[in-house]
Nucleic acid binder design. Structure first.
Lengths: 211, 211
DNA sequence: GTCTATACGTCGATAGAC
DNA sequence: GTCTATCGACGTATAGAC
């Protein structure tokens, strides 16, 4: 009668098993990213992810309680990477950079990465899906804005940028870039001129001195 | 047994009846706008709309096949009005206006109307709902961008604005304004300074000469 | 309005880990 | 030997086609 209880306590998840489970979770998320980049949310079915990860559908539910959880996990994973890339490009780390150089680098990174992976970018920015994804997008946009905000604040502080509310300018810039990219991304055309136009717009908008 | 069939064929919709049906459709749409402004999409149930319009729920289905159709009808109705207001504000009609005056008027109108009716603006711009509404939003944003585009093109043509792609700038501006408004709208705070900040951002972004 | 098809989530069986 | 992770097929709901 107590056999279940005692033996259950006796069983412990060993480090090896835990590591394997963790690796599996990572593998499933990566598979989902692959599917998302290729087929968008429209193609992101549990079956497709399971197939891509080479596991059974039931196995996916061991790590994610349902599709919603999987979707948000993948979304966050991708966004984290994108934000990090843009933050690095616009970072103050390379000291001695002018505001012009930093803004240019950040915008080019943002837009350039999007245009190199248009399907994924469209998915992140605009593909009509559902309320849960919309809510994630709001967070995503804010995360981007925050990386811009500190850079702008510093530019204003050291007089390289004219007086302005860094939070507003950063938010506006993220909205501007996102909105402009939606068109080209939706139609899969990589219009060459869009990135330079966007950089010029951003430089003017932040009041970066000409040349 | 045939009574239904014969009377159906014999029955013709008179102009008076048609007019009443049209009026009722308009009344239902207006009721839906009221509900939307007050409770957002979350409160936009067929029952709530019917109650607001003082008709039975079944009556709503006479003019709209389902909730999706009602939602898009209302969305389009509201958007048409907003676009017209902004277009009028930034219009070339008042000839002799400088680019600065027109940009300022358009942005102030856009943002001002949004902040006067925050719930409705939040609904139009950002409230997470579903794919159908998201798709409508994309059209909505483009409609706005087109009104800005012609004004910018003219400003560039007559040399009041520096060379730039009017389509890109217009799209970017719509994205910027929308993104900035989402924050204040979501939290129902009417931060005083946001409109002037937004105007300043827009003037810089389009390259309007200082003062 | 009905019908089909697609996809989510579950369940029992099997194989392997402890 | 016991327990658990994995598999894959099935039930069900919903959306889209005719």
């Amino acid at each position: 009668m107590n056999t279940w209880f005692t033996s259950c306590v006796a069983y412990r998840r060993t480090p090896a098993v835990q590591a394997r489970l963790d690796a599996q979770a990572g593998s499933i998320v990566r598979a989902a990213m692959t599917v998302l980049s290729r087929d968008g949310f429209a193609g992101l079915s549990m079956a497709a992810v399971a197939a891509e990860a080479a596991v059974a559908t039931g196995t996916v539910y061991k790590t994610f309680s349902g599709k919603a959880e999987l979707v948000t996990a993948v979304f966050r994973e991708v966004v984290t990477g994108e934000v990090a890339a843009v933050a690095a490009a616009g970072s103050t780390a390379g000291a001695g950079k002018t505001a012009r150089e930093r803004v240019t680098a950040a915008v080019e990174t943002f837009a350039g990465r999007a245009l190199k992976n248009p399907k994924l970018a469209y998915v992140l920015l605009a593909e009509p899906v559902d309320a849960a994804v919309d809510a994630e997008r709001l967070r995503f946009r804010r995360a981007f804005a925050e990386t811009f905000e500190s850079a702008i604040a510093e530019g204003v502080a050291i007089g390289q940028l004219p007086p302005q509310d860094p939070r507003t300018s950063a938010t506006a810039l993220v909205g501007a870039i996102g909105e402009v990219l939606v068109g080209p991304l939706a139609e899969q055309l990589e219009s060459e001129s869009v990135v330079p136009e966007l950089v010029a717009f951003a430089l003017r908008a932040l009041g970066v001195p000409q040349e």
